[in-house]
Nucleic acid binder design. Structure first.
Lengths: 243, 243
DNA sequence: CCGCTCGGCTGATCCAGAGCAGCGGCGGGC
DNA sequence: GCCCGCCGCTGCTCTGGATCAGCCGAGCGG
């Protein structure tokens, strides 16, 4: 099995113990490898998607544009994440997806997904688990925007992102590499880019996190977790649910 | 078929044309009728749910509490909505649910749901459709909190709620009855209760909506829609997707 | 009948974060 | 080698909405 498949496999294995048959079906999802340039819009809001993607390398983000030209980023996708899965299963897309960096992804046709799920129900369960975890993250993000201060939002987002990246083997407890610009963070957290800059400076001066030159360093993980009110239980699993 | 079943049936039929077998399975979900007092906490965050509920009458809301005592309401449930479905399918709850009014609901055991879905795949598809629509609403809500002003949020929320209620036969284009207090609206829209009051007054003075005495009246639907940037395509369906 | 709570309503003050304006560094295209 | 556009960064001013404080009317329990 190639390195490029390992992110998704690693993530799903944390949820459900996968048998060889499941892994083989999963491998079949990875036949159509494609790559996209940074900034490429992969999914357009409103258009039905005939295929989904599994991110192998690089980052993407899903967002909605508003009539006044501002945008709100709903979620960030990292290696191992599905992209456009809902659009395939339900024939409609309610948001757009854009490549943040150059990225490598496997294109999976709708028919392959449906067949694969029928043949490997445990795999289907694992993928649904992952989808539900994504939904939980969206809910947490909503709480961020509704009830947390700018500092808390930033702290919470960076901690969550760090935890997700560790799940797929990128980054560690000390920090991670992050290609997001301050503009991305602004659109993600519902702030202005100017204020993102100040928040980052403030957190750095407090000795909590340092985000510079595309690298996030957790200087004081405990303090940051307390500030954010971060509870990682919705991401972690003590062990596979199904054995 | 009883009146109490009709809300869910009506909603699902707008998505997928259901056969008699599907309707019979659906009817089987309604055997355990229960009722709850206003304010009763039906689902507790963190606890695994062995059963879900189908709301027959009354309103509920799902929310998360923050360490500092504030809360964020994620979504409002009206008759015809599922409640705790994700908790059943995935054995974990990431939010609490509380009865807003006195309410009547059918309790559906996890085993009934799984069996029913196996026997009536079209029904399963319809329910997944509805679940996905709910997710789209959460995303839209997130955009509200991130990028819209207080007035816009309020306008958007009231329009969306009105559209949802019409789907299940409650309220019409002119307005609807609404048991939510200004405190509910505050926790929903990420505002203070004081400011909710002022926003409502402002919208009323502008001749856009009137929310008084438990009744919402759309005085100027077109103007309100424009203010909110409301696009109802994610709620509507021109006709059933599957025939 | 009284008192208490809850929901709606208002005025005054305060502050987090927006908006505007501008600088510097750096990478990429010609 | 020069320009240009993107990204990070900063200071100043302004404002949307929070916070605090308090009033009123309606329901409700004793």
């Amino acid at each position: 099995m190639s390195i490029l498949q390992s992110a998704l496999t690693r993530k799903l294995s944390a949820f459900v113990a996968l048998a060889d048959a499941d892994l083989q079906t999963l491998a079949r999802f990875h036949r159509r490898r494609r790559s996209f340039a940074a900034g490429h819009q992969m999914i357009h809001e409103g258009q039905p998607g005939q295929s989904a993607f599994i991110l192998a390398a690089g980052w993407a983000c899903s967002y909605k544009m508003l009539p006044d030209g501002t945008r709100q980023i709903v979620d960030v996708q990292i290696p191992g994440d599905f992209l456009g899965l809902r659009g395939v299963l339900l024939r409609t897309t309610d948001h757009s997806v854009e490549a943040v960096t150059h990225l490598e992804a496997s294109e999976v046709l709708a028919s392959d997904i449906l067949e694969g799920f029928a043949q490997a129900p445990r795999l289907a369960a694992a993928v649904l688990w992952a989808a539900s975890r994504d939904e939980a993250m969206v809910v947490e993000h909503l709480v961020d925007l509704g009830r947390r201060s700018a500092d808390e939002r930033m702290a919470h987002f960076l901690l969550e992102l760090g935890a997700r990246l560790r799940l797929v083997g990128a980054g560690d407890a000390a920090g991670f590499d992050c290609p997001l610009t301050q503009y991305h963070l602004a659109d993600l957290l519902g702030l202005s880019a100017v204020h993102v800059n100040r928040v980052l400076r403030h957190l750095r001066e407090e000795g909590l996190v340092t985000f510079q030159k595309g690298r996030v360093v957790f200087d004081d993980p405990a303090g940051l977790t307390e500030l954010a009110g971060f509870d990682r239980s919705y991401l972690d699993q003590d062990g596979p649910l199904l054995r």
